[in-house]
Amino acid sequence: MKQLWDYLKVSCKIELENQLVFRSNFFVSILSVVIRVAMLLALWSALYQGKTQVDGISLATMKCYTVVSIVFELFIACNVEQSVTGKVKDGSISMMLTRPASYPVTLFIEQLANTFQAVVVWVIPYLLVILLCGFARGVQLYLGPWFWASALGAYLLMFFYQLFFGMIAFWTQEISGFLQARDAVMLVFSGSMVPLWFFPEKLFALAQYLPFQAMYSVPLSILIGKITGPDIRSALLVQLGWLLGFWLLSQLCWRKSRRRMIVNGG
């Protein structure tokens, strides 16, 4: 356990240092999020022109949803698929097996370090911006335990989901095509770009059967009070179901994949 803790500390340090290697690039990346926020807010203001509410959602709530969804996206951002695929392709995956900790555990620690860096560099400054610029003004936000539980659930779900897709690389070697196709579906049904409640009924119903809404839409809807009361519990149960499903699938794939491993020249 101590070894894992030490590994986490070293990984956090490396992730932070990596961010600051090219300083100009780092500052431009901060600017990129500012531009994104400004343009999205301008877009929603233009859409709401002459309207006070659409589907019971006011412009203030929508602006808050937009800004918070960007911060949330930075928080649950995961790079596990690329990491696994890269190692499978160049054969360095064999080195991972010689380590004392299991590969999925190592990946999880690296992911935690990545999140630590994201929280320090991105999430905290943007939360301060949200508070200082008054994006949350006039909006009733729910920051109780159900929100934190759903945010944690979304984080873990994203990890196991990406781990499962990363494991597919053991069979196919290259999965970038599958990821493109999957990202297209995710873009629509996660609710990160356009909230699901603006969807036509049939699309909305379809989104409920997919795991993507449990990653973005559920925690964000709980936060802005779109899901309340007993609906929170059922939404969290669905999220838990997806989480367990992807955890089982990724474990199964990991066990099977070790027998299919090919390293360069082997």
Binding site: T172, E174, G177, F178, Q180, A181, R182, D183
Partner: peptide
Amino acid sequence: LNFFVMLAGV
């Protein structure tokens, strides 16, 4: 396979 899935994906 990846090549064609990529095209469809885009």
